[in-house]
């Protein structure tokens, strides 16, 4: 398993863990937003849950403040592993810029694909906590599959793609059993096959498709959220069926600098390999 992570990856993991340990021991003042209200780093680098970008803006920057986050995510299913290293900066709780590098390890082929994603997100209306109107953000993810040979061989049309999305997020205070409930709904326009890991479009599918992505998380404590996500996916490659993704997760915001997420994921069928279920883990550092 570990051999799938290159040496530089392992060094980064160690560095991340060391920084996390330091931040837990010596918390530093991040921005002013309430604990957890930036969400966490999703697998595509944008602030959100695990697999869904939310309307939340990364980190703890409130008005006129800056924030930076770094994330490390792992998805481990039967025949695949997805590793994401990401970083994001945000300003004013309105603007988010994120960078992500995804390594997609295909165990049966003993090879990994690599995708880079630049994400931008802008909060345009509402507020996560303080207004009746949910927080509305719009965003884009500029994706580039660096090793296009395999996606091309299975029918993908393009190496690059842009996903456009709009998300609404809202925390309902005192919603269920006296606990706060976060809900998020995202509509994404995409041409991506398996989120771009298998390239973009196909000879039969050259147009954008609209997909829905949903999350709900109950804050059982101020620092612990238990949630569920659903990510609708297009199905464009003739060689294999693509399924919607689902996950269950527990997130713990240890303090304003470190959060960790663990979960169970169901990615369905990927590249003719069915029932890809397994584990999800993520850690985020925030300043």
């Amino acid at each position: 398993m570990v051999t799938a992570i290159p040496a530089t990856g392992r060094a980064l993991v160690r560095l991340t863990l060391a920084v996390a340990a330091l931040a837990i021991a010596l918390p530093i003042q991040a921005g002013s937003k309430l604990l957890g209200t930036g969400g966490t780093s999703s697998i595509e680098g944008s602030a959100g849950g695990g697999i869904v970008p939310w309307a939340t803006i990364a980190g703890y920057a409130s008005s006129d403040e800056w924030s930076a986050t770094a994330g490390y995510n792992r998805v481990l299913v039967d025949d695949f592993q997805l590793t994401t290293h990401s970083a994001a900066v945000s300003y004013d709780n309105h603007y988010e810029l994120s960078l992500a590098r995804q390594q997609f390890w295909i165990a049966p082929l003993q090879l990994s694909l690599e995708q880079q994603i630049i994400g931008v997100k802008v909060k345009v209306a509402g507020d996560l906590l303080y207004s009746d109107l949910p927080q509305l953000s719009v965003g884009a993810q500029f994706k580039h599959q660096q090793r296009f040979e395999v996606p091309q061989a299975v029918g993908a049309l393009r190496q690059n793609g842009i996903d456009w999305y709009a998300s609404v997020s809202k925390v309902y205070l005192d919603a269920i059993w006296g606990r706060n409930l976060l809900t998020n709904a995202t509509v994404r326009l995409t041409k991506a096959n398996q989120t771009g890991l298998l390239g973009f479009g196909s000879s039969d599918a050259t147009q954008y498709q609209a997909v829905a992505e949903l999350s709900a998380a109950l804050l059982v404590r101020h620092d612990v959220a238990i949630g569920i996500e659903f990510k609708q996916k297009p199905n464009q490659l003739a060689f294999a069926r693509e399924d919607h993704w689902k996950d269950l997760f527990v997130g713990w915001f240890i303090n304003r600098n470190v959060s960790i997420v663990a979960g169970y994921v169901d990615l369905g069928s990927i590249a003719q390999l069915d029932d890809q279920t397994g584990f999800y883990f993520a850690i985020q550092g925030a300043y």
Binding site: D127, L129, Y130, S131, D132, L173, D174, W177, G178, R179, N180, R221, H222
Partner: peptide, 18 residues
């Protein structure tokens, strides 16, 4: 203070933001 009471108070105070 119990979490449900905390959250109920927050829910009553949040609309004051505006």
């Amino acid at each position: 203070i119990p979490l449900d009471a905390q959250n109920e108070l927050l829910a009553r105070l949040a609309p004051m933001y505006k």
